[in-house]
Simulated scan of single mutants.
Amino acid sequence: MAFIAPPGYQPVYNPSVPYVGPIYGGLRERVSVYIQGVIPQDITRFQVNLQCGEAEGCDIAMHFNPRFDDMDKVVFNSFQSGSWESEDNVQDMPFSKGQAFELVIAVTAEGYQVNVNGRQFHHFAHRVPLDRVSALQISGDVSIQTINIIGGGQRGPQGYPGGMGVRGGWGGMGYPGSNLPMIGGTPNYNPPVPYCEVIPGGLSPKRTIIIRGMLPHGATRFVLNFKVGGTEDIAFHMNPRVLEGQVVRNSCLGGTWGQEERELSHNPFLEGQYFDISVRCGNQRFKVFVNGQHLCDFSHRFQPFSQINTLEILGDVQLSYVHF
């Protein structure tokens, strides 16, 4: 199996728009650009460019330009030597005004596969060599929550996998520490719920599990269970309850539930919103980050960690991907 770096330990959260930032290590096959955001009600258009540099007027390998007008459409194009080339016009609008979205641009040998909200939208053939693409630019009527580069084994500065630099007034990364390990494996994209998969090798100190998805409208609750293989024991149970605005944490060992923990500084789980959960196993506790902010700690009630080797996800949730 090819080595794949874990996704997004250094995402960009809530950048200002217009945004431009480098893609450390460049693009290659199996790399994906992952963007979450919200479309405003008064939108006219926005654009996402994969560029050959950060300077204004540089070549653009792929120009992605949704236009909200009398004939809603999405324009794809490239820009080389100071001139726009032939447009690909798609007479289909995958975005809705006032709604959150998830945009994934997956690099293939033939081009860029663009998916919106889990649906394949358009494939744009390569016109510019991949090794020239070095930056991402976003502008127009759009609010961005998360930008991340995943897959392909690229490293950002200070050895971060998949990291991105920033321009445009945003500097903090706000994510788990820089000593996160490199872990092999391929992300499981758009898995169905209920979800239950073995964590290869089980948990170990500093190992991090990434879960991304969204809460559909009408969602009331969902559950993450880190289970002990071969038993029904749950070493760590995390239960966001949307209507109550709480995230309940607990364990269930030997058929008995332990003491619930509910205290939180904030509740990041909202209907119709995408989320990004990072669960890191430490020596004394689990550390949970949501959307780049520390949410809670949960002291270990079960050891050895290696026997905690199954992740179960249940309830009102749509998954974008899970990565061990």
Rank of each mutant, 00 (worst) to 15 (best):
M1T: 05
M1V: 06
A5R: 07
P7C: 13
Y9R: 12
Y9N: 08
Q10R: 14
N14L: 06
P18H: 05
P22W: 01
Y24V: 05
L27Y: 13
V33W: 06
Y34G: 09
I35L: 03
V38H: 12
V38M: 14
P40D: 02
L50Y: 14
C52L: 02
A55L: 07
D59Y: 00
D59A: 07
M62V: 05
F64R: 09
K73I: 04
V75D: 15
V75A: 14
F79N: 11
F79E: 10
N89Q: 10
V90P: 06
V90G: 04
S96A: 07
T108Q: 10
A109R: 14
E110I: 01
V114M: 11
F121G: 08
P129Y: 10
P129W: 10
L130G: 10
V133E: 15
A135V: 03
I150S: 13
G153W: 03
Q154C: 03
G163S: 12
G165P: 03
G165C: 07
R167L: 04
W170H: 05
G172I: 01
G174I: 01
Y175T: 10
G177M: 08
N179C: 12
G185S: 08
G185A: 05
P187Q: 02
P187S: 03
N188A: 09
N188F: 11
Y189D: 15
P191A: 12
P192D: 02
V193Q: 00
V198P: 09
I209F: 05
I209K: 05
G218F: 08
G218R: 11
A219E: 00
V228S: 10
G229Q: 11
G230T: 08
T231R: 06
T231Y: 07
E232P: 02
E232H: 08
E232S: 09
M238G: 01
R241F: 02
C252A: 14
L253G: 12
T256D: 00
T256C: 07
T256E: 06
W257F: 11
S265C: 05
P268K: 07
L270Y: 05
Y274V: 06
R280K: 11
G282I: 01
K287R: 09
L295A: 06
F298M: 11
F298K: 12
H300G: 08
R301T: 08
F302P: 07
F305R: 14
Q307V: 02
E312Q: 06
I313D: 04
D316K: 01
Q318A: 02
L319N: 14
S320I: 06
V322E: 05
H323I: 00
H323P: 00
